[in-house]
Design a protein around this nucleic acid. Sequence first.
DNA 1: CCATGTGAACAAATTCACAGCA
DNA 2: TGCTGTGAATTTGTTCACATGG
Lengths: 215, 215
Amino acid sequence: MRSVSPSDGSGPPGVSSLTLNRLSVYLRSLRRLQEEGVQRVSSGELAERFHLSAPQIRKDLAQFGEFGIRGVGYEIEPLIDRLHCLLGLDCRRNTLVIGAGSLGHALARYLGARRDCFRVVGCFDVDAAKIGTRIDDLVIESMDALADRLETTGAELAVLTVPASAAPETYDLLVRAGVRGVLNFAPVRLEPRPGVHVRNVDMRVYLEELAFLLR
Amino acid sequence: MRSVSPSDGSGPPGVSSLTLNRLSVYLRSLRRLQEEGVQRVSSGELAERFHLSAPQIRKDLAQFGEFGIRGVGYEIEPLIDRLHCLLGLDCRRNTLVIGAGSLGHALARYLGARRDCFRVVGCFDVDAAKIGTRIDDLVIESMDALADRLETTGAELAVLTVPASAAPETYDLLVRAGVRGVLNFAPVRLEPRPGVHVRNVDMRVYLEELAFLLR
DNA sequence: CCATGTGAACAAATTCACAGCA
DNA sequence: TGCTGTGAATTTGTTCACATGG
């Protein structure tokens, strides 16, 4: 199974992708409880409420320190802060959206609406008819402007929603321009490159898994 | 790790979710080669070309029969047919899209454009302003019509793109109406129900994984 | 001869059971 | 007493090495 470290190689032993993804889920679950005014929670309560595994919660958290109080549970607020920081959500990450089809549109709007660490600072498309039009307060630019805008905005992340056929070359462009992470929605396996993290989100794969389960 | 069987319980020993997802990737890769006119391929070639693991390809495929020719490789066309059938893509699966925000819009269009086994036969939203408007040739209906439409269309799958706060109740509605699989885009863990398969696609989780990697 | 298919070795992840502490 | 933190056991997944057969 894929195991990852911050900045690709350095840092602590390396956290598994699965653990990492669960931490995101824990963080959100804790936030929900906090909104409800809860201040403390045990792994058991958390597990039951959000359909998770209690021993796994404990193991995942214990990997990063002793956050709990034995016999009591976890103090929600400090734990949220710790996870937030641990996941690297405590500083801004400028992000570009590549491809302004309906999916690119949806993702740009979604990210634009949230006031979190991911900020969309550019949106690009090859279609001349789209260039110059806007998604909320974001102006769609030509793909030719991509490398330059990545540099001037200091963007580190890109959300790739171009068609499969254009994905590898667009990815190349991003890599050469110095992108550090790519969330790839194109149904293509992109070539791994040193220092560039790729996360694939492949709708077809998910749908086909469901199709199999319905047989 | 999650391990799954067709129709939840019956059938062969059960295929792991990871294997299943790789089979989808293999299928697509093979289709790409077929378009290029290739007729035969070895696990090694396939692995190199699409950044996969050769022994894993062999093991994954061998789980379902002997598709290869020793000393030669795999015949592409029959292998595609076999995988297509194995994944349950050989019969139509009517699908509803719940929530007609920009993401629901994007997914409805995406699925509508494809001529594969997933057919969008309904789209729903709570927003009165949206009801009656269209996404391509699909008319957005009221959420009240959901259960009835699920029955009349014989839909088995639902793509859930409602806000997190509305997700659990909408999911309940779908389950009561007899849905068999849900592709959930809401950032919420839905309660497991017997006979209903849920696949979560959680954008925030993926983004936060990248955020961690950039620390 | 060469690539598949496979059992055995290895690695990773999850679950369990309980020691340790508030 | 009750829940955390953790080493040990188990399960699951991947890699390897080679026997098998076209």
